Amino acid sequence: MTDNVLAAHSAPGAPVPYDAVVLAGGAARRLGGADKPGLRVGGRALLDRVLTACAGACTTVVVAVPRATVRPVRWVREEPPGAGPVAALEAGLRLITAERAVVLSADLPFLGQAALERLLAALRDTDADGALLTDSTGREQPLVAAYRTGALRRELAALTVAHGGLTGLPLRRLTGALRLIRVPDPLASFDCDTWDDIANARARIREHGHVLDEWISAVKDELGITLDVDTGMLLDLARDAAHGVARPAAPLTTFLVGYAAARGGQGPEAVAEAARKAAALALRWEEESNGGEDGSSGGPGAPDAG
């Protein structure tokens, strides 16, 4: 049972503790049997993108054959392998302890932490059993959802008794017995079932307005960086260095800022302070090359007067 309630923006509050269960099995028949979790969008495997989105989970369980991933997770398989999403979810729930569980498929290229926080906040503010995303057509996405773990376990036990097991049961048999609320989010709920979906996702991240954030996220994943910094500040620094010194100064300066902050073992504040100092230096450098504070014509490239 689903309530047509919802909240595009939830009230602020403390972060809600949760565990995550990611279903990464399935035959991917509409993709010709391809390894869907391993398909890349923006240079990152779909599974890794989902794992980045739920990095705030206390415990993350992936139901699939183990593989290399962007961060450590716990692995489990449904019994028997290939028994379907309900059996896979039950297997994942065995390894978590939090009162709330975020349940995700492994094919969500645009899922982010903010969408999960909205789901958890919506669930926190009601007595519903769960909160799920809906797409642009209003279609519910039960594998982009936050649930009360106790409610899932209760209904899974009931299904096991009623059907003698969970093998082959469709997910709607489980979610149909739960009281759910809907959170519209066409982007975060977008999943990749076909090659056209993959192509559309790959094209979208290269659009102006998305490509820079996507690239920064990909680089951070590749390098194992979790630090969040103000990219606008770094771009301003790069602009100042390129304009006031020379174009190659832009990437070299931003590298040195990052190195300086890392050497100190500090967080975003250290990056901001190093960027401030470097930006001020670039402006002084430009000022000198334009004539100096006293209006003289000497610059870095000027010959010695003596």
Rank of each mutant, 00 (worst) to 15 (best):
D191Y: 12
L281H: 12
L93M: 10
E269H: 11
A114V: 06
E293N: 00
P248K: 09
D129W: 00
T137W: 06
T254E: 00
L223Y: 05
A68Q: 11
R74Q: 14
A115S: 14
D125I: 03
R179E: 12
V245N: 08
E99H: 14
P248Y: 12
P248T: 14
A57I: 01
G265P: 09
R100G: 00
G232M: 01
D107N: 10
A261D: 06
A114H: 05
L120K: 11
P303K: 10
A7N: 07
A91V: 02
G82V: 00
A114I: 02
G295L: 14
P85Y: 05
A45G: 13
Y18P: 02
P17E: 00
G92W: 12
L234G: 09
S136Q: 14
E273D: 14
G291N: 10
S105C: 10
R40F: 03
A131L: 01
V73D: 04
G244R: 09
A250K: 01
L152H: 02
D35I: 11
S296R: 15
R139W: 03
A275Q: 06
G299L: 04
L252C: 05
E293V: 15
R204A: 11
D294T: 09
A157Y: 05
V62L: 03
E207W: 00
H208Q: 07
A241Q: 09
C58Y: 00
D191C: 10
G267Y: 03
T254Y: 00
T137E: 10
P170W: 03
H163N: 12
E293A: 15
R202S: 15
T59N: 04
G258F: 07
A131G: 03
T60I: 03
G164S: 08
G25L: 06
G33V: 10
A24Y: 01
A270D: 12
V183Q: 02
A91P: 08
P72Y: 04
M233E: 15
E207M: 01
L283F: 01
A83Q: 09
R148L: 06
A250E: 05
D213Q: 13
W215M: 12
A218D: 09
D197A: 12
V63N: 11
A28F: 01
L89E: 06
P12H: 14
T253F: 05
Q141A: 07
S289C: 14
Q113M: 00
T160I: 02
L252A: 14
C54T: 14
G165S: 03
A28M: 08
R182V: 06
A260C: 01
Q141W: 13
P300V: 12
R49F: 13
N200C: 09
A274V: 03
M1T: 09
T59V: 15
A201N: 08
C54I: 04
A305Q: 15
L235E: 07
P109S: 02
T175N: 10
P251Q: 03
L281S: 13
A158L: 13
S105R: 09
R284I: 01
V21F: 11
G299K: 12
D135K: 00
V76D: 02
R49W: 06
A7C: 11
A14I: 02
P37S: 02
A7D: 11
